[in-house]
Design a protein around this nucleic acid. Structure first.
Lengths: 159, 159
DNA sequence: TTAATACCAAGTAATGCACTTGGTAATTAA
DNA sequence: TTAATTACCAAGTGCATTACTTGGTATTAA
């Protein structure tokens, strides 16, 4: 299982979609503005999500995206797997003869860790995620904040 | 906590060092050949490991590397943190006002997952890793396999 | 003195991420 | 019918990181 910022963007966008999706479809333009993710990048992410039927797109004015199925039935692992695709932690691509016929030294370790992470993320769905932080009353959602504070974005956010 | 191939290289190399380190120091050249990792890249990784005192280098002919402390006292998390350095899973670099004064939507999720992974990797040390797979009798170790099968390496291991 | 090793710094090719640009297709509202 | 709005699509760009290369210097055993 791979964990990158890409997967995190996708989860954030899906969470936004869950929160706003009560009345009608949500446009990518809205998600882009609220979450500070570029529109075209969202399009790419949603192309992956759509391929896995995690979202459903509606074209034309008044269109946008719906969740592909109830929020209770979409796990975080589903989302991450859709955009990041499953990448083994092992170097050998999953086959057993990675190092000259022998399993590579740390194969089992990464296997176990991968399962650990997958289980953790499989047991959390979008509905639970909404519950957990009391996000709904948070002003975080759909406040049309201006992007003035995100010039180029990124920047150095190490520490 | 960041999980990249870099960290996996480091763990693999440290595991090799643990297995071979019984009698005298182990040279990077040996690890390079056995594990199929370039010598100079190993040097860079070991510079990080040395800085965190996870290994101890001995110069000159007959030199090489020792573990910096007993294998029981070196966790996988120690190794990965040494080379990958700790990177928050959250987008905001750890501060609480990531999105206009509010914590970003999925902050808690990544926080929890990060802890989950860290705990998992903290509870496994090199000695346990050696035990677990019966690696010692495996022919995997120090067989002087030729690198003919690893031309450019990498390749596409998605799927 | 030589060879083997660690140690060091700079540069390079490949990759993936986040984004940009410039479209086409479908649908609604005028 | 037309225009606007949205999803949908493909190619390319800048950047950071990865994994590696090159070309050294420092230390020490033989």
């Amino acid at each position: 299982m791979r964990l990158s910022t890409k997967g995190r963007y996708a989860v954030t966008a899906m969470l936004d979609l869950t929160l706003q999706g009560g009345d009608g479809p949500v446009t990518l333009a809205e998600i882009s503005e609220t979450q500070g993710i570029s529109l075209s990048y969202l399009e790419q992410l949603f192309a992956c999500l759509r391929a896995k039927q995690l979202v459903r797109g509606v074209r034309g004015p008044g269109g946008g995206y719906y969740l592909g199925r109830p929020a209770e039935e979409i796990s975080i692992a589903d989302i991450i797997c859709a955009v990041d695709e499953w990448v083994e932690f092992t170097r050998c691509g999953g086959n057993r003869d990675c190092r000259d016929g022998k399993r590579c030294l740390t194969h089992n370790l990464w296997d176990d860790l991968s399962n650990e992470i997958f289980n953790f993320l499989s047991n959390i769905n979008l509905a639970q995620l909404v519950e957990r932080g009391g996000l709904k009353e948070g002003g975080c959602i759909r406040e049309k904040q201006k992007e003035a504070t995100l010039p180029g974005g990124s920047g150095s956010q190490a520490a």
